[in-house]
Amino acid sequence: MARGDPNYKLTYFDLRGLSEPVRYLFAYAKVEYDDNRIKREDWPAMKKDMPFRTLPVLEVDGQTIGQSKAIGRFLAKRFNLVGQDDIEQARVDALVDYLEDVKHAGVGLMTLFREQDEKKKQEMKDQFFGETLPDYMDVLEQHLRSNNGGKGFFVGSGPTWADFAVAVFMDALDKFQPGFLSKYPLLSAHKARVEDLKGTKEWIAKRPKTVM
């Protein structure tokens, strides 16, 4: 890190989860940061010191920012990955916000992940992937298709943090339900395109192997 560069410290669990789009931002922008991964058993003692008693948090030269979307937006602005004008920025924000709708639709992705009863989990998966997700996936493909026929990125001519957020979410879906993305060729190709970007490609190759 060069003298005078900001010091970044990202604190989260040893998971991809909510922090992975942020890690993609750092990787693509080629900006160094401290990827601070904590153990679950250490979290209760830390919780009250966090701005919103949640993770992730980002420390920037001693200043702490909470909430994953705020962190993503902050870094995307710094790294010029928010869109080229106000309209593009609004579209980028809308896509990231829409992903929250998708994640919490129906049974919700996190509820599905945490379910321990395998029979119940399978029933929930069938409902989520078979009934809940298709409409949301169609909407995402429609937005992607509306920009350059879906052959590039969601907004404008280059990647934004919305592309990273969507690609990470698609990766999570693919892990939960292998083969599901084959029904959505534009989103599948977009995921591959984002993962092949210089910076993100190298990060994916070296990142820690985690369950999620």
Rank of each mutant, 00 (worst) to 15 (best):
S182Y: 10
Y33A: 05
N7S: 15
A90C: 11
Q116T: 13
F153K: 00
L109H: 06
M170E: 10
E195N: 15
K39D: 14
K119D: 13
L55A: 01
K30P: 05
E32A: 15
L25H: 00
M212H: 10
D35N: 06
M170H: 03
K209C: 04
K183D: 14
L18M: 12
V168K: 11
P208I: 05
K48G: 07
K119W: 01
V31M: 13
F154C: 05
T111A: 13
D34H: 11
V96S: 08
G106Y: 04
K30T: 06
D85W: 05
N147T: 07
P178R: 07
D49T: 12
V57F: 08
L81R: 08
M124Q: 08
Q63E: 14
D42P: 13
A76Q: 09
F13E: 08
R145S: 10
K198C: 08
K209S: 12
F129S: 06
M212F: 15
S68R: 12
D86A: 15
H190N: 01
D163F: 03
T11F: 04
G108K: 10
F74E: 01
H143N: 12
D86R: 13
A192S: 12
F153H: 02
K183W: 01
K47E: 08
V82R: 13
K206Y: 02
F113H: 14
G150W: 04
F79R: 06
A162C: 08
K125D: 02
K77L: 13
E32N: 14
G149K: 05
A162Y: 01
V155K: 01
Q89H: 13
R207W: 01
D14T: 11
V96C: 12
F113E: 13
D97K: 03
G83D: 08
K198R: 12
T54C: 07
Q67G: 11
G130V: 05
R40P: 02
A205Y: 04
R40I: 14
P134M: 00
V31S: 11
K121L: 00
G158M: 09
R73H: 13
K183C: 11
T111E: 13
E115F: 06
M170P: 02
K119H: 07
L173H: 02
D86F: 12
K209P: 01
D14N: 15
